[in-house]
Design a protein around this nucleic acid. Structure first.
Lengths: 317, 317
DNA sequence: ACGAATGCTGTTACCGCTAACATATCGCAG
DNA sequence: CTGCGATATGTTAGCGGTAACAGCATTCGT
């Protein structure tokens, strides 16, 4: 018992005893068994983080926000990856909940019924991140992708572009990309416009795909004067293609992506984009789990963040 | 007890009982407590994966290799990130070992003494990945970065370049980048050459940094005819800069990076590089932990993989 | 028809730690 | 010297599962 107290810095232990214990622990290479500890204390210092992908550049940054915030709370993030599959999400969630974490941070608002039920029943703080266009189980932190799409469309129309094409991923379960497109088309419609062309891809090097898709679109629909990409990576590929072809950007043709990845800073011309507040989302989600969020209330909150539109060098005006 | 058997698919249970149990579990939203299970059975289906960073594009790919292989073994990866700090690595390792995982996959061969001691004492399979230039605690899977640096130098020299500069990260704990540089300089020395210039950076957008560093080097040392980058991302930035400046690549100046990231496929010209066998490393490491590696032996093995040099369009010949 | 094998379910004793409480030790005021 | 609070250490009973083994029907071979 005294050993337990020393190793957890809890309760009163005399200095001499404390030192003897620490010395012995060091000498024996003793590592306490958290499994037993957790079972006895009914407390687990783990936070489940469930995200669709790591190869995306966006989720690693969310992770950074989470890790940094959790750093000095004694909580530890544990990552699960779903590959954009709802079934996989469900099983990863089940697996993680069975370790009784202190909280769950999960990307998106769309889950299987079973997953929603598990989340609702877990009795721990749940934070759904990235997106707020929908009904969260508990708390949510993110941006409105529908609004983001709308804003971009409005900026494009205001700049005078009229023949607009969309280029994006073909992932049935990437709801955020879908919502952006929906918002985008909605704003186009309001201005009496509609997409002139659209092109989808899946898999492969995003930069290369952006290049190829752009070529395909411009060949098929030469009248296009704006290319809206569902992410910065394919947008960057498209930009490199346009510059290579000697097109006048943004005079003759404009481009925009989404995410605000730092990659863009190194491009010959800065791609228009909207940052997705990734770091901030991670930070706030972690604060909610750690009970540190200034809002103070206990869960059930939707925190909307507002991305800023960066026009870069690829939208006129 | 019967419930336990049903939920783990172990032992004999009659169909009728099995169904009653499953129905009840579903109705109650019962999620078994793995903590208790693990304590009782002394078995934990977790594999600790300890890596320096997620924002690197290389580790996510290793993770993919690991996840894919572990998928059908019942084992689950748990990721810890060290940010290239040995102390942080030590504490992350301690934290993870206290959950008694079934194995540890950890990047690099350089650890604090305490970390090495913990790994050696853990009594579970340990696989150190990415690098094999050193002495592993148990098993190791990776490439020789020293040799990789040497090979690249030899290829560059063979192509006739003589005024070679190095551009890389300034991370005291990125041992693999250091070893590549060492091997590189070693091979230069053997040919009676030495680096004409060198430039280091830390933090910021790699693509942009590559651009800036390249400009700095070419301004300071106009005689330079080859730029060797410690990673593809800064190499890509440098390539974009050279093309922008209208330099003749690879005639007037050559470039090479390291990693073989898919990003390169989308560049206007393909950067010379060596792939780091990232997916394969993850796959093999996971196989060793899962006891599935064909080698059959029980640990203590060093598995060297051999990266291939891709000359791309940025080395003559 | 009988013992053995088989199939299913139940009992018991932990796993390694911690909460809660109990006991011991000490200093010091009264 | 006693009594009391403060400090330091020890005791006990679980936490929620599982291994190992113990029942008890039922089936089977001979």
């Amino acid at each position: 018992m005294t050993v337990s107290r020393v190793l957890r810095n809890r309760g009163d232990v005399s200095d001499s005893t404390r030192e003897r214990v620490q010395e012995a622990a060091r000498r024996l290479g003793y590592v306490p068994n958290k499994i037993a500890g957790a079972l006895a204390s009914q407390r687990v210092n783990l936070v489940a983080v469930i995200i669709p992908s790591l190869s995306n550049m966006v989720f690693p940054e969310v992770m950074t926000g989470i890790s940094d915030t959790l750093e000095d709370t004694g909580l530890q993030p544990v990552v699960g990856v779903t590959n954009y599959s709802p079934d996989r999400e469900e099983s990863v969630l089940y697996e993680m909940l069975s370790w009784r974490p202190s909280g769950v941070i999960i990307a998106g608002l769309e889950h299987t019924d079973a997953a929603r039920a598990m989340l609702a029943q877990a009795g721990i703080p749940i934070v759904e991140i990235m997106d707020i266009d929908g009904t969260p189980v508990d708390s949510a932190v993110g941006i409105s992708h529908r609004r983001a799409g709308r804003q971009m469309a409005e900026a494009i129309i205001a700049a005078g572009y009229r023949n607009i094409a969309f280029l994006g991923t073909m992932m049935p379960h990437d709801h955020r990309a879908r919502k952006r497109l929906e918002g985008f088309e909605e704003a186009l419609a309001k201005a009496g416009l509609s997409l002139v062309d659209r092109e989808f891809y899946s898999g492969g090097s995003a930069l290369l795909k952006g290049r190829e898709m752009t070529e395909a679109v411009l060949t098929r629909s030469p009248q296009v004067d704006f290319l809206y990409y569902s992410n910065d990576m394919i947008g960057a590929g498209g930009l490199l293609y346009c510059l290579h072809k000697g097109l006048d950007v943004p005079g003759q043709i404009g481009l925009a992506g989404f995410n605000g990845v730092e990659l863009l800073d190194g491009l010959p011309r800065k791609l228009a984009t909207m940052d997705a507040c990734r770091l901030e989302i991670g930070r706030v989600a972690a604060e909610i789990i750690a009970g540190k969020h200034p809002s103070g209330t206990i869960g059930g909150e939707v925190i909307e963040l507002f991305p800023t539109l960066q026009k870069g060098d690829t939208i006129r005006g």
